[in-house]
């Protein structure tokens, strides 16, 4: 069995990877994947916290699992909207490089 701490370390690592991907990568599709990675890293933390509460309080444990299910549903909707925005960007700009999206500034 994994301990709560090791799960949280993995979650923190995944979240940081996601943050790096959003801030550091140029391809919008990679940015989208990184956004999903951030949400799923939090899911891991939620489930791990829920598991840790299972020994003392079953209701608290279930809360974490249900929270994670809600996040999965939201992430799916977000991916749908995100991909259609990427499609729109490709049609208008013929590029999915975030650094090309800089007509507006100031």
């Amino acid at each position: 069995m994994f301990s709560l701490t090791s799960c949280l370390y993995i979650s923190a690592f995944l979240f940081s990877t996601g943050v790096y991907g959003v801030l550091g990568r140029r391809n919008i599709l990679v940015v989208l994947m990184s956004l999903e990675l951030m949400l799923n890293a939090v899911n891991l933390a939620l489930v791990a916290f829920g598991r840790a509460y299972a020994a003392q309080d079953l209701a608290a444990a279930h809360t974490g699992q249900i929270f994670a299910l809600m996040v999965i549903a939201v992430a799916a909707a977000e991916a749908a909207v995100g991909l259609s925005i990427v499609l729109l960007v490709w049609r208008r700009w013929q590029s999915i490089d975030v650094r090309d999206l800089c007509r507006m500034h100031g």
Binding site: F15, V19, L35, G82, L88, V89, W93, V98, R103
Partner: peptide
Amino acid sequence: WKLGAEGAAKYFILGAFSSG
């Protein structure tokens, strides 16, 4: 509008980032 696509993309990326 090119600007519309650009604004929506920036809004989406930063909005989803902050949701994280």
